[in-house]
């Protein structure tokens, strides 16, 4: 196995309780002792139900929140304590695509401005040619650069979000539920786009999702979380064909199968 690009080592994250007029809430152990490696160019799917800690873990990896315990290594460097310039360097190499393309783009900025943001932050060239290349790489046209987010459909907005993530030419992208807010007919477009970009650019991908069906086609490896712990991880074929953990199996069993011949409810009578 090659040297991992991103390595989460025994990561834990606890949220402290909050005081209210009527007592204080309990501390929440969102992530407990999770270790996960992602190799360069590899796609790992982080799967779990709500409250499993998958989103918190991705935020720890992105350094959007700090781990309570454990280390995060990026390309061999401990980034857990990075500040200032070091953190900026990490942000250039590791970018993010958010779930909701409706709230994650500033409605008062043109697409061009949204895309130049990260370029400016890192002092990278941001001439027209760069922007044209960026926007076409996600399947949009250069003339879209002068428009505002509300002029686009959900799928197109998510393309803009992906273009923004690509702007600094990162080595890895973390995508948090990248298609769950999109229409079914658009999901495949966006998943295929992510897969193509990964193949062209040798990107490593961490796709966070609650839907095992969605990540089936794109992931090399799958990691399953439950209640803050990693219950199983392995190559995609093995997880889907022969899950070891009973929780993984129950998740797979619960996914609706788009084939009426295999359902448990009786079929309607035919003539």
């Amino acid at each position: 196995m090659p040297e991992p690009l991103l390595s989460l080592q025994h990561v834990s994250k606890t949220f402290r309780g909050r005081a209210t007029p009527f007592g204080s809430s309990e501390a929440k152990h969102a992530v407990q002792d999770v270790s996960l490696d992602i190799a360069p160019g590899e796609t790992v799917a982080l799967v779990g139900e709500s409250g499993s800690g998958k989103s918190t873990l991705s935020r720890v990896a992105l350094r959007l929140t700090d781990a309570t315990a454990g280390r995060v290594l990026f390309d061999g460097t401990d980034v857990t304590q990075l500040r200032g310039r070091g953190l900026r360097a990490l942000r250039r190499e590791l970018s993010v695509v958010f779930q909701d393309p409706y709230t994650s783009l500033n409605p008062r900025q043109t697409v061009a401005r949204i895309l130049t943001g990260p370029l400016r932050n890192h002092g990278l060239p941001r001439d027209q040619k760069v922007l044209d290349e960026l926007i076409t790489s996600v399947g949009l046209e250069p003339e879209h650069l002068n428009r505002y987010p509300h002029q686009f459909s959900g799928g197109q907005r998510q393309r803009i979000g992906i273009a923004r993530a690509l702007a600094t030419q990162p080595r890895m992208i973390i995508a948090d539920e990248p298609v769950s807010a999109l229409d079914v007919s658009i999901r495949a477009q966006i998943l295929n786009l992510l897969g193509d970009l990964r193949d062209e650019r040798g990107l490593a991908l961490l796709v966070v999702s609650h839907d095992l069906a969605v990540v089936r086609g794109i992931a090399d490896r799958v990691a399953v979380m439950q209640d803050g712990r990693l219950v199983e991880s392995g190559p995609v074929e093995q997880i889907y064909a022969d899950p070891k953990d009973p929780y993984t199996r129950s998740l797979l069993d619960a996914v609706p199968v788009p084939d009426p011949h295999r359902r448990s409810r009786p079929l309607p009578p035919t003539e």
């Binding site: 459909s153 197109q156 007919s185 495949a188 295929n192 069906a213 089936r216 086609g217 995609v236 889907y240």
Partner: peptide, 23 residues
């Protein structure tokens, strides 16, 4: 038919048959 092809499922690996354009 396109919707059926574009629906992610547990058995197909690789690319899904995407429907071009927007609804």
């Amino acid at each position: 038919q396109a919707l059926l092809g574009a629906t992610p499922n547990l058995e197909t690996s690789g690319r899904l048959a995407a429907i071009p354009g927007v609804p």
